[in-house]
């Protein structure tokens, strides 16, 4: 069963006084549950735009995106927020941890949004942190952690609520080769252990080599899958 359905999606950016700029031009894509899939392509090819549309962070110009069969275009802003909370995890290139929260609090944030009791939150986060080698950093603030540690916290935040799909936008771009490879191996293991679907955008050959499937985008079009 497809977790993500992208159907003939276009996204055109229109800035006042400038010519319309198409970022995606009729992209269609099905992502099955448990896939470990990469979106590849050069800068400006539409990878991040497609991830944003799948995550409900942006709205299509035409076409339709469905998560678990629910058309995102028909959801209100609060409903979209709920869908992201319940079904989607995000890992950003720049980690984007909340600086005023500890590592554990960052990871527990989505669980708190879902109304998971504090004790259960703490237990789940601790288990994930142990699994990701972050056991010693539960109460550490992000600014005191290395890039690789912060990105692992971001991964913990994305998976701790057991979403249907994790969207990772160039997750290794700010990491050195070894740390990036370790992170990809970790995500791969989580994919296999927990059956979480991963979609990540990248142009890093190391990342691409670990994907089950690579969807190549050029100038807003899928050119290979």
């Amino acid at each position: 069963m497809a977790v993500v359905e992208v159907e003939n999606v276009t996204r055109v950016y229109e800035e006042k006084g400038q010519a319309p700029s198409p970022a995606l031009r009729g992209v269609s894509l099905l992502v099955e549950k448990g896939e470990f899939m990469a979106l590849a392509g050069p800068s400006g090819s539409g990878k991040t735009t497609l991830l944003n549309l799948i995550g409900g962070l942006d709205a299509v110009t035409s076409g339709e995106v469905r998560i678990d069969g629910r058309a995102l275009g028909k959801l209100s802003r609060p409903d979209l927020a709920d869908l992201r909370r319940d079904r989607i995890g995000f890992v950003f290139q720049a980690y984007n941890l909340v600086p005023v929260l500890t590592a554990a609090e960052n990871a527990a944030y989505v669980l708190e949004l879902k109304g998971v009791p504090a004790g259960e939150r703490r237990a789940k986060v601790k288990a994930v942190f142990e699994r990701l080698g972050l056991g010693a950093f539960l109460d550490t603030r992000p600014m005191k952690m290395s890039g690789g540690q912060q990105q692992r916290v971001a991964v913990a935040r994305a998976i701790v609520s057991e979403p249907a799909v994790v969207l990772a936008d160039e997750p290794t771009a700010n990491l050195d080769q070894a740390t990036g490879a370790a992170l990809m191996d970790l995500m791969r293991e989580l994919n296999r252990e927990r059956g979480i679907t991963f979609i990540f955008s990248t142009h890093d050959p190391m990342v691409l080599s670990r994907a089950d499937r690579v969807v190549r985008l050029v100038d807003g079009l899928v050119v290979a899958t």
């Binding site: 802003r77 709920d82 909370r85 995000f90 950003f92 984007n96 909340v98 600086p99 989505v110 949004l113």
Partner: peptide, 16 residues
């Protein structure tokens, strides 16, 4: 601003 975008992407409702 960016942090609010992150919170929204994690599923934080506008009201929160």
């Amino acid at each position: 601003t960016r942090e609010f975008g992150v919170l929204a992407s994690l599923g934080t409702r506008p009201s929160r």
